[in-house]
C-alpha cells in the first residue's frame, strides 16, 4: 500500500457527520413547525428550558469533553450574563441589539482573567479553583444588594427592538430561542471540528505531547475557556429574557453541578451528548418532581450507575451499540 492509496481510501469514506446533521436539521424543522400544529404553551416552555440548558451544556462540553478541563464553576458565566443583561436593561437600554451582545461580552470578558488564572492548575485543583471563582460570583450576586437585588433576585425588563417591545408572547420567544440555539449549536460544531477543536482534543488526550509538539497549551486552554464562557453567557441571556427574572441561584455551585451532570449523562466529548443529557435530566426533573421530593436520590443513583457501567454517557452507549450492530450486520 502506498501513501497515495491510503489517501484515496481515506477520502472515499462516507461522511458520517452529514447523517447526524440531517437528523438534527429534521428535528429543528419539526420543533419549528410544532407550534403551528398545536403544541401547548407549557410544552413550549419546557422545550425552551431544554434548549437553554442544552446550550449551556454544549458550551461546557467544549471544556469538559473536548479539552478535558473539568470546570465546576461553569454556571458563573450563565449567572454573570444573566445579571448583566438585567443591569444593562435597567440602566442603559432595553434594546435587544444592545443588551444581548453586551451581556455576552461581559461574560466573555470575565472569563479572560478567571480562565487565565484557573488554567494554571489542572485536574482536581482546576475543579476547585473554578468552583471557588463561581462561588465568589454567587456571593457577589447574593450580597451586592444595590446592584443585584441580593437574595430576592432581580426583575429583568422585557426586551425591545427600536423602542417597540418584542418577544412578549410565549410563541415568539419559542422561535427566538430555537433560532439562537440552532445558530450557536452550528457555531460550536464548527469550532470543535476545526483545527482549533482538534488541537483541544489533543490537549485532552495528552498535554505533555502537545507541548512537545510546539503547541502553547495554556493559550489554547484559555481560548477554550473563553469560548465556553461566551456560549454559556448566551444561555444565561436567554434564561433571563425568558424568566424576566434572575436570582443568585443561577450562579450557585448546584447549578454548575447540574450542568456537569447533563454533559456526563449525555456523554462528554460527543457533540450531541450534552443535548441528550440536558433533555433527559430536565424531563426527569419535571416528571419526577411531581411524584417525589427525593430528586437527589434519583440523580445520585443515575450517577453511580452511569460512572460504574457507562463512562461515556448515553451517547457513548448508543455509539457502542451502533458499532456493534454494524460490526455484526451484513
Amino acid at each position: 500500500m502506498t501513501v497515495a492509496d491510503v489517501i484515496v481510501q481515506r477520502r472515499s469514506k462516507p461522511f458520517v457527520a452529514l447523517r447526524l446533521w440531517s437528523v438534527l436539521a429534521l428535528m429543528i424543522a419539526a420543533f419549528a413547525a410544532a407550534p403551528f400544529l398545536g403544541m401547548p404553551q407549557f410544552v413550549q416552555a419546557l422545550v425552551i428550558e431544554i434548549l437553554v440548558f442544552s446550550l449551556l451544556a454544549l458550551s461546557l462540553n467544549v471544556l469538559l469533553g473536548y479539552t478535558g478541563l473539568v470546570s465546576f464553576g461553569h454556571a458563573a458565566f450563565f449567572g454573570i450574563a444573566g445579571y448583566a443583561i438585567g443591569i444593562i436593561a435597567i440602566h442603559i437600554s432595553t434594546d435587544i441589539l444592545v443588551t444581548f451582545p453586551l451581556a455576552v461580552l461581559v461574560a466573555a470578558l470575565c472569563a479572560v482573567p478567571i480562565g487565565w488564572l484557573s488554567i494554571r492548575l489542572s485536574g482536581f485543583y482546576f475543579l476547585m479553583i473554578t468552583f471557588a471563582f463561581a462561588q465568589m460570583v454567587f456571593v457577589a450576586a447574593f450580597r451586592w444588594k444595590p446592584v443585584t437585588g441580593g437574595s430576592d433576585g432581580m426583575i429583568v425588563p422585557g426586551a425591545t427592538l427600536f423602542g417597540a417591545p418584542i418577544l412578549g408572547s410565549r410563541e415568539s420567544f419559542y422561535f427566538f430561542v430555537l433560532a439562537v440555539f440552532t445558530v450557536c449549536a452550528a457555531l460550536l460544531y464548527a469550532i470543535v471540528v476545526s483545527r482549533f477543536g482538534r488541537t483541544l482534543v489533543g490537549i485532552r488526550e495528552s498535554t505533555p505531547r502537545m507541548r512537545a509538539l510546539g503547541y502553547n497549551v495554556r493559550r489554547y486552554k484559555l481560548a477554550a475557556f473563553v469560548v465556553g464562557a461566551t456560549f454559556g453567557g448566551v444561555a444565561g441571556v436567554l434564561n433571563s429574557l425568558f424568566n424576566l427574572f434572575i436570582a443568585p441561584e443561577s450562579a450557585h455551585w448546584t447549578q454548575s453541578a447540574l450542568v456537569l451532570v447533563m454533559v456526563l449523562i449525555g456523554g462528554a466529548g460527543y457533540f450531541v451528548g450534552p443535548i441528550i443529557g440536558a433533555t433527559i435530566v430536565l424531563l426527569l426533573q419535571h416528571w419526577l418532581s411531581s411524584y417525589t421530593e427525593y430528586w437527589g436520590l434519583v440523580l445520585g443513583i443515575l450517577f453511580i450507575v452511569l460512572i460504574t457501567g457507562a463512562r461515556e454517557g448515553i451517547a457513548g452507549l448508543v455509539m457502542q451499540g451502533w458499532n456493534h450492530l454494524r460490526g455484526k450486520g451484513p
Binding site: R10, V201, E205, R209, R211, A212, G214, Y215, N216
Partner: peptide
C-alpha cells in the same frame, strides 16, 4: 524555556511512557 519554545528551535522528543492521543486514529 518551555517545551513549545524549544520545539520552535527545532527540538523534538519522544517519551519513555507513551504520550499518544489514545482515542484518535494513527492518522489523526
Amino acid at each position: 524555556a518551555r517545551p513549545d519554545q524549544l520545539w520552535a528551535r527545532g527540538l523534538s522528543r519522544t517519551f519513555q511512557r507513551n504520550q499518544l492521543f489514545q482515542n484518535l486514529t494513527v492518522w489523526e
